[in-house]
Deep mutational scan, measured.
Amino acid sequence: MATKAVCVLKGDGPVQGIINFEQKESNGPVKVWGSIKGLTEGLHGFHVHEFGDNTAGCTSAGPHFNPLSRKHGGPKDEERHVGDLGNVTADKDGVADVSIEDSVISLSGDHCIIGRTLVVHEKADDLGKGGNEESTKTGNAGSRLACGVIGIAQ
């Protein structure tokens, strides 16, 4: 089992970053940390998408990683996509320092995120509470600013 993974985020604009993942036990939580720069100040949706395909930019990554066919939600919700990591918060300089621990994603097994795409979005994720159909699919997080395929790390 891989215990570490990394993702280099890039987009068409100024947004870029490096996100690290570490899972010490196969059924334990995954620590997610790193930094994203070039964002507007505020909240930005942060999700693992189904495919590791960036051939047409971030759009070819498909929908959120959702092997259990659930509705979109927040990272602490029972009803959520596996890939729903909530929001990252950018400061006035456009930098989001990421520090998350998640017990639904994994670096092995059915919820493995390796080979899938991590995406940072234009807007805040409403965590499935926006009151419309799009909220239950995407959290109304808007366009995909930057993305990268999650790969095994040393």
Rank of each mutant, 00 (worst) to 15 (best):
P63A: 07
H49S: 01
G109T: 12
P29E: 15
A96W: 08
E78R: 14
G62R: 02
R80T: 01
Q23A: 11
D91L: 06
A56F: 09
I36R: 01
G130Y: 10
V6A: 11
G38L: 12
F65E: 00
A5D: 03
K31F: 15
S108E: 12
D84T: 02
G139N: 01
N54I: 14
F51W: 12
D84K: 00
A61N: 03
V149W: 02
E122F: 13
H44W: 02
G62C: 03
E41T: 05
G45W: 01
K4N: 10
G38M: 12
E22S: 10
L39K: 01
L118H: 01
N20Y: 15
E22K: 12
T59N: 05
E25V: 12
C147P: 00
S135E: 02
V15H: 08
C58L: 01
K71Y: 10
Q16L: 12
S143V: 09
T136N: 12
T117V: 04
T136P: 07
K37L: 11
L118M: 15
S103D: 09
T40Q: 11
E101P: 05
P67D: 14
K71A: 12
V30Y: 03
K92F: 14
L85V: 12
H44G: 06
V15F: 11
S143R: 06
H72N: 02
S35H: 14
W33L: 10
E25I: 15
K123M: 14
G34A: 08
G83H: 00
H121G: 00
S106Y: 06
F21S: 02
L145P: 10
C58A: 00
S108R: 12
D91Y: 14
A2D: 04
G151R: 01
G11L: 11
E79V: 11
C58I: 01
T89I: 10
Q23N: 15
G11V: 12
L39Y: 03
A124M: 06
T89N: 09
G74P: 04
K31D: 15
V48G: 02
V32H: 00
D102L: 07
G28C: 04
P63E: 11
D126W: 01
N140Y: 08
A96N: 04
V98Q: 06
V120G: 03
V119C: 00
S103V: 14
H111R: 12
V32Y: 08
K129Q: 07
I19F: 09
H121A: 00
H111T: 13
V119L: 05
E22R: 11
G148E: 03
G94P: 09
T3R: 09
A153S: 14
D102Q: 08
H44K: 09
R70W: 08
N87V: 06
R144I: 01
C7F: 00
E133C: 09
L43E: 06
D126G: 01
V119Q: 02
V32W: 05
A146L: 03
E22N: 12
E79L: 10
R80L: 00
V30E: 03
K24A: 10
V48R: 02
I114W: 09
P63I: 07
I19A: 07
A146V: 04
L43R: 14
D102R: 05
V6Y: 07
I100Q: 15
T40A: 12
A5T: 09
K76C: 13
C147H: 01
S35A: 14
C112N: 13
I113C: 13
I150W: 02
D77Q: 11
S69W: 13
G142F: 06
S60H: 02
G83M: 02
G115K: 00
G11P: 05
K4F: 09
V48I: 15
I113M: 06
G131Y: 07
R144F: 02
R116V: 00
K10Y: 15
A5W: 04
E25C: 06
S103H: 07
Q23E: 11
